[in-house]
Write a protein that binds this DNA or RNA. Structure first.
Lengths: 160, 160
DNA sequence: GGTCGATTATTTGTATACAAACGATACCTG
DNA sequence: CAGGTATCGTTTGTATACAAATAATCGACC
């Protein structure tokens, strides 16, 4: 019934220690970290719901878009562009390659690296996914007024 | 050189397809989902750096605080309070119990559930961690001006 | 040319995060 | 009381996310 998390519920109905002054007004649900985690969770849920048909996760989508727009990138460079750990990007790229959306080629100039490129199928998926992702961004920001949205994004950018 | 992710760098220096009009001005780094993921990553890094001495993750801290302030909760209820899946909260609680911060007791009134309570050690860890967490929140919001911080938190709350 | 530090990609281990399925139990309704 | 429904906790499987260690290679410097 409740979708996933009833955090909106009253803090603690069975609470006894809620009035303890020792916590000095610290409310974990009001902290930036908690709210960021919840907002990220909500976005991920919206993404899965709206992008689910294409079977792309947020990270896979981001990586694919960066590969497409860059034309050719190495794996580590892609990780830096997409803000993913080398160990993380390895799995993301492996799954994109397994689905035939991306190819890996040896780089004769640097035998350590593998150059990543989008396949025609990957390009087509990316093209469709961008349209979908635009709607996902709109859905994510829907609770804000049109005036609040750029303001929120500007503040969020400062935190990175 | 670049710390971990050069997202601030010019979009794509080797880019060829960057000027393709097909993408209609879609820039993945400017999307709400990407920024939320990055901001959450930054907070997690700050949390680990500043709370590392106590060896508490953000989720473990949140769960412990909810157990302490509620006095006694079941696992599923804790999950709803802390916005965690039943499968997720299971692992979080297991680790807190293994460290002796939390105990599980049978509930004679409902044999499906286990009642969670903080141990004295858990209470003490929570007390110290709250002070640390207050600093973590400050560090997370440090890039914003004092006037921007409550505004940002208010907007973030609307997104949940 | 040889050595050393840096970079690339991988692997291992741990911790979220969630879908899906499961057994056990509670509750509700006829 | 019986039967259906809902809830609780667990397990399995997949996907991030990152620390730490590793092998291969590159580049720079002597």
């Amino acid at each position: 019934m409740t979708k996933a998390a009833g955090v909106g519920a009253p803090a603690c109905d069975e609470a006894a220690a809620a009035d303890t002054p020792a916590w000095g007004g610290y409310v974990v649900e009001a902290q930036a970290g908690f709210l960021l985690r919840r907002a990220h969770q909500r976005h991920a849920a919206l993404f899965q719901e709206m992008m689910g048909a294409r079977d792309l996760t947020p990270t896979q989508f981001t990586a694919l878009i960066k590969i497409v727009t860059c034309g050719a990138v190495t794996q580590n460079r892609l990780g830096r562009l997409a803000a993913m750990d080398p160990a993380t990007i390895q799995g993301v790229v492996r799954r994109l390659v397994a689905r035939g959306l991306v190819t890996r080629a040896f780089d004769p100039a640097d035998r350590r690296t593998h150059v990543l490129r989008a396949t025609p199928a990957g390009l087509e998926v990316a093209r469709q996914a961008v349209a979908c992702a635009t709607e996902i961004t709109a859905a994510t920001l829907a609770p804000l007024s049109p005036a609040e949205r750029p303001l929120f994004l500007a503040l969020l950018k400062k935190l990175i």
